[in-house]
């Protein structure tokens, strides 16, 4: 573990029992997150990216591996010690309305987070609420509004204000802009970037929107069926994707063409992501992989370094 990491995830795995079968949600994932940086978690439905985010926050217990946050093994902390740590690790969800109590005013919802963490006197907390609202670009008047009275973008700002109020060092952002309009998405992305600069926050940014991930992330981890298929600095990954799945993902991005002549040709991509209940043997991507060889069908490829700080799990990427 590098000395400067805020968060270190080591060989974390999580399996869920579904009836008599076992769902491999997360398989042997490791990464470090230095302070003030953003890790983008990318993958499609069923890739395990949200489960991994919840494991980091210890909202779900891992079956194997450990999560070190500020040098402490979260799995070994008592409930009380964990509650104290939660002040430093917050979360923002996709649906801001669902994550806010509909019967609580915005001010009360934010203050509640402070009360749980036993921060400040009542008077001080009021000031902190106003301060948090101001940081996310909302007027203090919003304090007395109920969540349903706000627009989607404002609700998400409240979600961010609530997370910020307790003074976190890490915020797990789980698809925080997916349900917002594009013009509002850009507002929230800019807000998250500005807050990171001002406050030195670290983010784990979970998203299927690769453009946003590219803009926000320092490093990006690509998951497929719960496994890391590629992990690299964002710039390097987007310039030089080495895993066929990462390439497939990037090929699926629809950029605005320069003219009708340069429009995308729509070619059917073979196959669907297999069920995590029955992951294929060998490389989990081999049934859909355009370059798979016999070895891929039987031998799971290890993560190997393909260039500096760039690892990929592909027999043919070396």
């Amino acid at each position: 573990m590098p000395d400067n990491a805020l968060l270190t995830v080591e060989h974390v795995s999580k399996r869920f029992k579904v009836g008599r079968r076992v769902l491999h949600a997360v398989e042997d994932v490791s990464f470090d997150l230095p302070p003030g940086t953003t890790l983008g978690l990318v993958g499609e439905s069923g890739s395990g990216k949200s489960t991994l985010g919840r494991i980091v926050l210890r909202l779900i217990e891992a079956d194997a591996g450990r999560v070190l946050f500020q040098g402490q093994d979260l799995g070994k902390l008592s409930q009380e010690a964990m509650r104290k740590q939660r002040r430093y690790m917050q979360v923002i969800f996709q649906d801001p309305l669902a994550s806010l109590n509909p019967h609580m005013t915005v001010g009360r919802a934010i203050e509640d987070a402070l009360i749980v963490q036993q921060i400040g006197t009542k008077q001080e907390r009021q000031e902190m609420v106003d301060e948090a609202l101001r940081k996310v670009g909302l007027s203090p008047a919003v304090r007395d509004a109920f969540p349903f009275e706000l627009s989607g973008g404002q609700q998400q700002r409240v979600g961010i204000a609530r997370a910020l109020s307790v003074g976190p060092r890490l915020i797990v952002c789980d698809e925080p802009i997916s349900s917002l309009d594009v013009s509002i998405q850009v507002q929230i992305v800019k807000l998250l970037k500005d807050l990171q600069q001002d406050m030195g926050l670290s983010y784990i940014f979970i998203s299927h929107n690769l453009g946003v991930v590219r803009h926000l992330s320092d490093t990006v981890l690509v998951l497929y069926l719960g496994r890391v298929v590629e992990h690299a600095p964002a710039r390097e990954l987007f310039r030089n994707p080495r895993h066929p799945y990462t390439r497939l993902l990037f090929d699926s991005i629809l950029r605005i063409p320069k003219s009708s002549a340069t429009r995308r040709k729509f070619v059917a991509i073979p196959g669907e992501m297999p069920s995590p209940l029955a992951p294929p043997p060998g490389c989990p991507f081999h049934p859909r992989c355009p370059i798979a060889v016999d070895k891929c069908k039987t031998e799971p490829p290890p993560l190997v370094e393909v260039s500096a700080d760039h690892v990929a799990a592909c027999h043919l990427a070396g």
Binding site: V182, V186, G211, I253, R255, I256
Partner: peptide
């Protein structure tokens, strides 16, 4: 034009 500007494309 503002909508075009809101497209976050993953390019350098």
């Amino acid at each position: 034009i503002a909508l075009f500007g809101s497209m976050l494309e993953p390019d350098d």
